[in-house]
Design a protein around this nucleic acid. Sequence first.
DNA 1: CACTCATAGCTAGGTTTGCTACCTATCAAC
DNA 2: GTTGATAGGTAGCAAACCTAGCTATGAGTG
Lengths: 114, 114
Amino acid sequence: MNAQAQVLKGHLDVLLLATLEAGPRHGYAVKEALREGSGGRFDLPTGTIYPALHRLAGAGLIAGSWSTVDGRRRRTYRLTAAGQRRLHADRSNWHDFATAITALLETRPWPATS
Amino acid sequence: MNAQAQVLKGHLDVLLLATLEAGPRHGYAVKEALREGSGGRFDLPTGTIYPALHRLAGAGLIAGSWSTVDGRRRRTYRLTAAGQRRLHADRSNWHDFATAITALLETRPWPATS
DNA sequence: CACTCATAGCTAGGTTTGCTACCTATCAAC
DNA sequence: GTTGATAGGTAGCAAACCTAGCTATGAGTG
């Protein structure tokens, strides 16, 4: 059973891209940025974050590179040009989407029940 | 390959419940209400609508009853009390969710890249 | 020293969701 | 007689996110 269920509903990718817009970050920092930036609302497990970053990297939207800091390995990601484009597109799509859903949820009354 | 991809991303249920708020409708009418109410943006295939309605019925959020109109069988759905409660909750969740995402996407600049 | 916690990374597998692709059937229009 | 809109349905795939588990380091506490 799923206590909490899919909090981000398909909008995780945009958010990940957005956290990288200001500059490169490693995975854990992305997770923290999302948590802090949302006031704790989006505190995602690493099992969500890392696979998603791999997915974005596989799609060429971000690029990762290994480094070692204090004997701790880190994988730092940066936005690629394609990622930047995707972010812009997704941001605009989000606005359209949110507007459409909000409008539908506020439609009152709905067109006549035939 | 998915040309259009999961347009509703987990928010389908609220919309279906919302279309039934004003009164009972049969499945096809729900589909049309969604299409018209969104200006054509959410023109979902019946393969999305019907299974979703079955799912909601199975969860006790809507209740369906068969009838026959002009020799054509129809299954008319109405919101249950639980469905009404769920709709109210989901509507409020949507607003919080949308606000949070929008805020994150507009966060510029993001908290310092460590 | 032993332990825990925050940091940092990872994977396997399951469930849910929405979609494609298909099927049946009636009625109206051409 | 065939098409298109209406009306219902299913099987099965793919993606997405989550749970649950794993390794490892460094700092702080007992």
